[in-house]
Design a protein around this nucleic acid. Structure first.
Lengths: 338, 338
DNA sequence: CCCCTAATTGAAAACGTTTAGATTTTTGTC
DNA sequence: GACAAAAATCTAAACGTTTTCAATTAGGGG
């Protein structure tokens, strides 16, 4: 009653050996029905729960995967996490989540702890794309899947959202509505998302034979303030854009603030598309058209990649999956006729 | 090289017994400096990482706490989680997070799994306040802290935000600005938050000798649509309110939509305070005054409660902590002079 | 009723730690 | 340099499983 019952206690009560109990617990078959029932009853009676630590020690499996994110407070990650968890649950895996606060040092500590705990695999959005601090994982030969950010120094499966395509779709949508003067508020060009979204923008213009107007390319830093300033700058141009594409959520918010302040009518005087859906999108009037990322799917695929790696220990080739973002058309873009 | 080095390998290389290695690993002292250095070198050389499973088996401690939330996609919980994680990290604890999707059945499975894994304690926002499905935790004598939702059928430490006080502060703020006709959009009265926030509203009116006007009390269901409808209803009153208090975030959003539609000028014709901060709050014009809950602190306190329970196995009395919500004054309320 | 095969069951050895309790080494004192 | 006390180290026994291989039992054909 006081201390937890173990497999011994069950065996004793059911009058069998622990081996047989183990077989029943793990559904391995080869136990007479009558015996099995007796054991099941004993388990029930004692309230026996198997001990994962002991089991892990033998089987070298924990059925646990570690998930590392840079910032749990960023809504992107809980949504990805939900996808991971859903698939993991299906396969009887459990997840351990830790957040690094964008610190590679914390990240390394977490990894060490994960290894101590014997995670079967790791899904990570690293705080440092160079990945030198991830060498422990490589050494231990633990399957890893990178999400949203690549890891340069070592080959792992990667799940990304296709930034180029997303930006392309957005700009294409504007072009097809007749816009020619389309501005972009860029993210930092030394980050993958910032750079790639700009590439998508350029590509769309090229494909439709619209010359790139440098004055419509405004640099931002993914922060709200920069979106605000960029928008003001655009307003001041001789040749104002008729449409704006913002490279991320926070800059979208800054942009909206500027628009209102300048009384630059959204959806009428200027069309708008933002990368990443934002909470305010459906609240604004008109509602914002955005390129949304399928967070849940990202998580699902990340888990499935990891799962496959865990199953086939063999060296699969490195894979990369680029998910297409989705253009959600609301009301912030209108046809533009000269 | 192929399989993980264990304490044996370290001992062999350092030419000591495993007991001594163990002592060094755990900083227990009583090892000559010279020996310690030799062992440390061996550990380094082999890349030895200790095995949590084996260690758990002996010490019956995992330094792990389980966190159960009903919906990881609801931003409230990641924020609480961040607080938990922060404190946990300080104390060298790790967290396992699982989301139940509001299903008591999933919740029970998670609990069983947590127990198998030997978590030292559990922090939970249960999917079912009755708590009958939590009996395993009680049986196993595992410390539990309830967050945001109470557990009726069994006595555990509880961390709540003081709903009564929060609502009281909001309404008081309105009263002190001269408002007398203050409406409330209620949440469901059979839920703790819904009921308590209404109580706070009533109490404030009483304390300032303002008679309760039933027509200003509108029932909602915490959903956006109900906030929208409630607002329309209020507008139709002969005696319109000069201020509105909304009981939660989603209803606040509905309310805002209605206000705009009705062209009922926020902050001028009608003052407003909402329970719970919302992303759009600072985006609207005027910015919304709200009662905000200190999510991070909730998490921190929850962990500290749990930690104390884990330390003193003894039976502490059941504790309950009500955190004061914070009134964040922005611009949606104005002085009202008759 | 006996024997052979197949189906069950059991005994015992890991897995990698921690930790008493025993043993050895060091240190200090005379 | 001998002796006791203190410090350092070691031996060995758990912890609760899984799993191999051996032993036992059941089932069936003759």
């Amino acid at each position: 009653m006081d201390s937890k019952p173990n497999i011994q206690d069950v065996a004793r009560l059911a009058d069998v050996s622990i081996a047989t109990v183990s077989r029943v617990i793990n559904n391995q078959g080869g136990v007479r029905k009558q015996t099995e029932e007796r054991i099941l009853k004993a388990i029930e009676e004692l309230g026996y729960i198997r001990n994962a630590a002991a089991r892990t020690m033998k089987s070298r499996e924990t059925k646990t995967i570690g998930v590392i994110v840079p910032d749990i407070k960023n809504p992107f990650f809980p949504l990805v996490m939900a996808g991971i968890e859903q698939k993991a649950r299906e396969k009887d895996y459990f997840t351990i989540l830790s957040s690094t606060n964008e610190s590679p040092i914390v990240e390394e500590k977490i990894i060490k702890n994960f290894i101590e705990r014997g995670v079967d695999g790791v899904i990570i959005t690293t705080a440092n794309e160079n990945g030198g601090h991830l060498k422990l994982l490589k050494e231990q030969n633990i399957p890893v899947v990178a999400v949203d950010r690549i890891i340069k120094s070592f080959d792992v499966d990667t799940v990304l959202v296709d930034n180029v395509k997303g930006a392309y779709q957005a700009v294409q949508h504007l072009i097809l509505q007749g816009h020619r003067n389309i501005a972009i508020i860029c993210g930092p060009q030394n980050t993958t998302p910032g750079f790639e979204r700009y590439i998508g923008y350029k590509k769309a213009l090229e494909d439709y034979n619209i010359p790139l107007d440098e004055s419509l390319v405004v640099q931002g830093d993914f922060g709200e303030q920069s979106g605000y300033l960029a928008t003001k700058r655009l307003r001041d141009l001789r040749q104002r854009p008729t449409a704006i594409f913002s490279s991320n959520n926070l800059m979208t918010i800054g942009c909206m603030k500027a628009l209102e302040e300048l009384n630059w009518k959204l959806g009428e005087e200027v069309s708008f598309i933002g990368f990443d859906d934002v909470d305010i999108a459906t609240f604004l009037n008109p509602k914002l058209t955005v390129v949304a990322r399928p967070m849940n799917t990202v998580g699902e695929i990340a888990f499935m990649f990891l799962y496959e790696r865990i199953q086939f220990k063999g060296a699969l080739p490195k894979r990369q999956y680029s998910l297409p973002p989705e253009l959600i058309v609301r009301q912030s873009c209108r046809l533009w006729e000269k």
